[in-house]
Write a protein that binds this DNA or RNA. Structure first.
Lengths: 68, 68
DNA sequence: AATATATGTAAAGTACCCTTGACATGAATA
DNA sequence: TATTCATGTCAAGGGTACTTTACATATATT
């Protein structure tokens, strides 16, 4: 699974800290998501999509046969 | 968060077991999701949306201020 | 040189998604 | 009555999303 979080964040000139505050998560969480260290929860994915005014499917690119 | 998993499954005349096999998860997982015992991972939400030929946002109804 | 800003790593703890397995219930049908 | 099918509960365990805290690095500015 790929994510466009970093690209969308930069388009809006937001820092990781600003994004983390908007989402009410830690900055560590943003770093880890952008670097692909892990996948967000469904609710966090939804909040990210809302902030970036797109759908979850626009923000995350799913590839074949991923682990559940 | 609400989900339309059960409704979409029944529209297609699938049993919980058939759905669990299509998703390669346990039947327990389907039961728990339908009953709202917990929220699916992002990947599982995506697979469900694919099976039901809709978007994640069509299948899950997000309500205000949910836990991350 | 020193300070500030943005990004990064590491480690340890908590909460929860998902699993397996065993057993229970209600409705249909032989 | 007995069996089958679909659905459900309960409990224990593994893996991972997310947290907090502390420290590191690169760039820019004073």
């Amino acid at each position: 699974m790929k994510t466009l979080i970093r690209e969308k964040r930069k388009e809006r000139n937001m820092t990781q800290e600003e994004l983390s505050e908007a989402l009410k998560v830690s900055r560590q969480t943003i770093i880890s998501l952008e670097k692909g260290k892990y996948k967000p929860s469904l609710v966090l994915a939804h909040k990210l999509a809302q902030i970036f005014e797109c759908t979850i499917e626009d923000l995350f690119i799913f590839e074949g046969d991923e682990n559940v």
